[in-house]
């Protein structure tokens, strides 16, 4: 079994001016080398959890261990290990992309090659333009570069693909994957099922500050998905639909005779999409 990077135990947090807890006793582990997703609707407590784990909020209840040691016992040297991608904006808009990266890079002991990183996200040519002139996709990619400046061990990413066009989202997702393949650990929050399906090894559903489910995307599908086969076929001049259980489908006489005798239009195995699971588990609609 891989090492535990984080062990979060009964974590609770209340904002100063609020009378309800934003995080209500959540527990989970994050293993070395995995992409762990925290998924939930708006206001569920994803960003709050991330801010606690990145030590921005320090007066929480419960316990967080980082490599077996209480997070509260780490100095700011903890941040040498971390790469954090917040929601936008996060840069000095009146400095160039390169100047931004150069400034942040100097704050760390370990320093990645800035041009190399900019090149990987396709920003090398724009490195001398002001960040204020960047498009949203460019800012997001720069945000990702900033997170990688110090060769981090752990990446925290808050909604890093939110609002990106498919091409930019692809670039970012490939980089997250590459980071993992190089041995890095990723903690990401999102309300996009697509991200989870493509990236996450494990996902925790959070709803109103509580975790309602932790699983692999695949086992979620198996658990919540309807295992069934839906057949559309042509009969007496119109299209009809029949549904059969997926179990023992090979010996199901009705099904077998149907596909033998009728003109079949479509056959789908009825795995529920993660979008539908999201609604089932959290009781809320997923954002597009």
């Amino acid at each position: 079994m891989a090492k535990k990077v984080f062990e979060v135990k009964d974590l609770r947090f209340r904002y100063a001016k609020s009378n309800v807890e934003a995080v209500r006793g959540i527990s989970f582990d994050v293993y070395e080398g995995e992409i762990f997703g925290l998924l939930g609707p708006s206001g569920a407590g994803k960003s709050t959890t991330q801010k606690i784990m990145t030590k921005l909020f320090r007066d929480y209840q419960g316990e967080i261990l980082y490599y077996g040691k209480d997070l509260k016992n780490y100095s700011n040297a903890y941040y040498e290990d971390l790469g954090v991608g917040f929601e936008l904006p996060v840069h000095f808009s009146k400095l160039t992309g390169y100047e931004n990266m150069h400034f942040f890079s100097q704050l760390y002991q370990q320093r990645a090659d800035i041009d190399d990183l900019l090149n990987q996200v396709g920003l090398l040519e724009d490195k001398d333009r002001m960040v204020g002139e960047y498009s949203k996709g460019m800012k997001m990619r720069l945000n990702f570069v900033r997170a990688l400046l110090n060769h981090p061990k752990v990446l925290f990413l808050d909604e890093v693909t939110n609002g990106l066009d498919p091409k930019n989202a692809r670039i970012i997702k490939d980089l997250i994957q590459a980071f993992k393949e190089a041995g890095g650990t990723v903690f990401l929050t999102t309300h996009l099922m697509n991200d989870v399906e493509e990236l996450c090894d494990r996902v925790a559903f959070i709803r109103q500050g509580e975790i309602v489910e932790i699983a692999t995307p695949r086992s979620l599908k198996l658990k919540y998905g309807n295992r069934e086969v839906r057949v559309e076929y042509f009969n007496n001049g119109k299209t009809e639909t029949d549904v059969y259980p997926l179990d023992d489908i090979g010996t199901n006489k009705d099904f077998l005779s149907l596909i033998k005798d009728k003109e079949i239009e479509t056959i789908h195995s009825g795995e529920t999409s993660l979008d539908e699971i999201f609604i089932k588990v959290t009781g809320e609609k997923v954002d597009a």
Binding site: T54, K55, L56, N76, A77, Y78, Y79, E80, L82, V84, F86, L88, P89, V90, H91, F92, S93, F104, L107, Y108, Q109, R146
Partner: peptide, 16 residues
């Protein structure tokens, strides 16, 4: 604050 860089600096190893 608007550009969130105050926050970004807080997640670097810099002393407060």
């Amino acid at each position: 604050k608007q550009e969130n860089t105050l926050k970004t600096l807080l997640i670097t190893p810099s002393d407060f």
